[in-house]
Design a protein around this nucleic acid. Sequence first.
DNA 1: TAAACATAATTGTCAAGCAAATATGAAATA
DNA 2: TATTTCATATTTGCTTGACAATTATGTTTA
Lengths: 246, 246
Amino acid sequence: MSIQYAPVVATSVTKQIAEQIRESIFDGRLKADDRLPTEHELADQFSVSRPTIREALKLLAAQNLIRSRRGPTGGTFVKRPTEEEARADLTTAATLLVSLGEFDLAEIAEARHELELVCGRLAAQNRQPRHLEQMAAEITVQKDPELSDEAFCASDVRFHRALVDAAGNSVLGFVMYTVIEALQPVENMVIFRFRERQKIIGQHEKILAAITDASIKRTEKAITKQMNYLRTQFAAAQEHRNRMTG
Amino acid sequence: MSIQYAPVVATSVTKQIAEQIRESIFDGRLKADDRLPTEHELADQFSVSRPTIREALKLLAAQNLIRSRRGPTGGTFVKRPTEEEARADLTTAATLLVSLGEFDLAEIAEARHELELVCGRLAAQNRQPRHLEQMAAEITVQKDPELSDEAFCASDVRFHRALVDAAGNSVLGFVMYTVIEALQPVENMVIFRFRERQKIIGQHEKILAAITDASIKRTEKAITKQMNYLRTQFAAAQEHRNRMTG
DNA sequence: TAAACATAATTGTCAAGCAAATATGAAATA
DNA sequence: TATTTCATATTTGCTTGACAATTATGTTTA
């Protein structure tokens, strides 16, 4: 690697070393699949013992930034996470946040509504045939009366993801994927509690039709209708929860 | 703690131990602020050496699940991440994603535009005096000609955060904070390159005025104006980058 | 030619102990 | 007596040196 490191100064040596290596990964000095020096060499370079180096490497390993292999061609390698892994990390972090932060269900519903409206407007403008097909396919799936609740929820997620994809903005897509995913436990609760599938399917059909016709107004109206429905269900679930706890 | 652990079987002992402790945290056997046995005791319980235990603990420490303190009343404690830390993790994950996902600057600008519009509309409805004061204060800061570029950028971030806060939706807030933060490197580049501070300040003043008057239409207009400006700057930066690389 | 084997390199783990921090209680001092 | 100072015990942080496990490479052997 032959990168010059600044001398370690204070707090935890382990953390500082981890931080320096992390930085050299993020600023590009170390690229994906680059091999780090051996633990022994790192220990020499940082003037610490091998166990200390190993602890630092474990800090990075926990964040999926490196991987190690034994043997002559082994060693420690930089492992830039794939987009998928990075997105999984993002979802994990978001889910944790949702589980901690006591988000008001009403706020969740409002945020979801507004974000979905944005996606809907863009989708009405940018949708490609494949998005319409995907949404139609999910509606077909949802009509199957044999479908389990879990499968229905999963299809619901896929429908809304297709809508997000149709918006044709990957940044917005990542945001929405994360929000949809993080709020899924709550939404599942609603779907499991009030199994009004027909209503949901009908709403999906109207959304799809509006987007197919590239009508922004109708898309907004259809999405608002579904989101308002979700909102009432959230409120009911909230009230039910309050009765249980209070 | 007095929890019975299953004997370790295969792969990396370190990882397995970390996994077992992680599980006992997540399934509630270990609660927040519970103290784990000393490293020496853990080493005995798992029949491994202390360095191995320490590596396992580092894996958990990297995920903010534990914290350690030296001294007689010290030890290793279960640490439920604070909301702030969880949000920091979220931002880190998002930043990583932005850094590897090749997001089109135009898409970034569009997403930012749409999201900020949502916040602006809600802010015009829900803003409290403290939000207006915060935004006004940041504009004052930005007018200081002595201000460094870094400080100007930081104030810009705070202005937009105040706008987000004014929307009064914490879910949307988290999303926006993350997006703003993750896209900051790109935005900084724009501000550093084209130092048209006066223009930006003027746009901020119009946004603030519109929100103060609770005018959704004017808020939309003002935000769109600033976002379109950002968009042109992104495009210029994009073109410049293309010339450099092409 | 191909299979078995030794070899070397590298991470994984162990052992015992010293260093640093820090709460607690005892001793010295005002 | 009240307060400060100091010794002490406890726990993590880190060191040193070594052995075990894994695995690519080259060498020997059938």
